[in-house]
Design a protein around this nucleic acid. Structure first.
Length: 260
DNA sequence: ATGGCAGCGTTCCGCTGA
């Protein structure tokens, strides 16, 4: 199966570009972040007519995640466990029934956390601790599983065109990178880094200051694979071309192909 | 050194994002 994680920055604003991309690339599964829509306003029928099963976890104005799948979905769960008071819609999980085997997928929109330090940064780090608990539970299944989405984490200096500009930022502070590493080192494989080494590979370019034209990007959209999913990895790549189209999101799709 | 763009709701400004 071919699947992509894609922060679309608003489903209403992106419906044209997203539909074009789906029809061209035909992902079996699209894990979407920042739908910026409540569930009732999400254009579900539009994507169903394109052959997708649609599961959303939205909220008004901001955040929101969704799973679009051509393959059957089972056992949908909405929200990241661990804090009943958290009202932000940033996590949805489902089992995708592949042709040869099922794959459990968590679709996440990790908090930005700026300004740091401060309450938003505290929320980010607390959210990452809850995600680590969920990651541990997924690994305990000992089955193909992945955690994919907009992590809002620059894992290493090579993942930013100008790392020096990010040292104080919530996306790159040492505590952020350490928290990300604590999840990865539980036993996950960064799918993209399993296939491509070196600097210069980004998944986000700011709308401001001609970041795209200057290739001033950062790599913050990641797919982490359980060992059983990593065994199925055929390929991984970033669809950078999408950023140069009309009315683009500020993020681009990051892909994996799995033998499933 | 700063801000620059884009989307959305509280809409013709303010907030958030990264």
């Amino acid at each position: 199966m071919k699947l992509a994680t894609f922060n679309i920055n608003g489903v209403k604003a992106r419906i044209g570009a997203l539909s074009d991309w789906l029809q061209e690339q035909k992902p079996d599964v699209a894990l979407l972040q920042e739908i910026k829509s409540v569930d009732e306003q999400f254009p579900r029928e539009h994507f169903e007519e394109m052959g997708y099963t649609v599961e959303t976890h939205g909220q008004k104005g901001f955040n929101g995640v969704a799973i679009l799948s051509r393959l059957p979905l089972e056992d949908i769960s909405r929200g990241l466990p661990g804090d009943e008071t958290d009202e932000q819609a940033r996590y949805i999980e489902a089992t995708v029934i592949g042709e040869t085997r099922p794959v459990r997928m968590g679709c996440l929109y990790l908090p930005n956390g700026n300004p740091a330090p401060g309450p938003k940064y505290d929320y980010k780090l607390a959210w990452m601790e809850r995600l680590r608990d969920r990651a541990r539970a997924l690994l305990a299944l000992e089955e193909p599983a992945l955690l994919a989405g907009d992590w809002n984490v620059i894992p290493q200096a090579e993942d930013a065109a100008r790392p020096e500009a990010w040292v104080e930022d919530a996306l790159f502070r040492p505590e952020t990178r350490a928290a990300y590493r604590r999840i990865e080192t539980l036993g996950f494989t960064d799918a993209f880094r399993a296939r491509v080494r070196g600097a210069g590979h980004y998944s986000f370019w700011d709308y401001q200051a001609n970041s795209w034209e200057r290739n001033n990007g950062i790599r913050i959209d990641h797919l982490l694979l359980s060992p059983q999913a990593a065994d199925l990895l055929r390929d991984a790549w970033i669809d950078r071309e999408v950023r140069g189209r009309d009315k683009p999101s500020d993020h681009v799709p990051v892909w994996v192909e799995l033998d499933a």
